[in-house]
């Protein structure tokens, strides 16, 4: 989280701002945020204590941020959990979300990895309606999407697909015509490419 909160605000230069006569309407002050809304990925390392997930979720709700997905897991360190939060918002709003997360005592580190090169993965299980006439076709599509049929029964196939969110979206759209009986997605997990490590950054 190393950004300048003022970058969204276009401000008059001081030299161009003498006390103007009262009848000239001054330019409106830029509000924080108001920029383009886009998907952001936040990675948060938190102390693994009871209720920490509740704290994060409660904060996001109370501060009016909408979480698209939230994935929580252990890390290599027993006392630390990792959360991957995806949300929509402009850069300033998401930075505000990250700063608010930092205020939680149990949050150790928050990083917005949206603009960094990352590996992003999500896993989905899709239970697709299958008949004798469509089964082969569906299996072919699963294979083409680099997925796996993990359960095949008389009337359905469970396909496992993984990859970036967009790949999963594409697969789901592809098989929707056959009838999706059930769908579960884990939500994205991300990791920055290269040798840098958010976990090692903790050991300052």
């Amino acid at each position: 989280m190393s950004s300048d909160p003022s970058r969204n605000g276009v401000q008059p230069e001081p030299s161009a701002a003498p006390a103007a006569p009262a009848h000239t309407a001054p330019p409106p002050r830029a509000l924080p945020g108001g920029g383009v809304s886009r998907a952001h990925r936040l990675v948060a390392l938190v102390v693994d204590r009871p209720g920490v997930l509740n704290r994060v979720a409660s904060l996001m709700r109370a501060r009016n941020f909408n979480i698209d997905s939230l994935a929580v897991s252990r890390t290599d360190r027993a006392d630390i959990s990792r959360m991957t939060i995806t949300l929509h918002g402009d850069d300033v709003a998401v930075e505000q979300a990250a700063k608010q997360l930092y205020r939680l005592i149990d949050v150790l580190k928050v990083q917005d990895v949206t603009s960094e090169p990352t590996v992003e993965h999500e896993l989905a299980l899709v239970k697709i309606r299958a008949t004798d006439s469509t089964r082969a076709e569906i299996l072919k599509l699963v294979e083409m999407s680099r997925g796996r049929a993990v359960d095949v029964s008389a009337e359905a196939i469970i396909a496992e697909v993984s990859g970036p969110e967009t790949d999963v979206d594409a697969f789901v759209a592809l098989v929707r015509t056959y009838g999706i009986k059930e769908l579960v997605r884990t939500g994205a997990v991300v990791m920055a490419r290269g040798a840098q490590s958010i976990e090692e950054a903790l050991k300052r």
Binding site: D4, P5, S6, N8, G9, R29, P32, Q96, K99
Partner: peptide
Amino acid sequence: IDPAEIGKNVAVEVP
């Protein structure tokens, strides 16, 4: 003292 207060309501030049 609270970074979350800076830029929350008003965009600022020097935080």
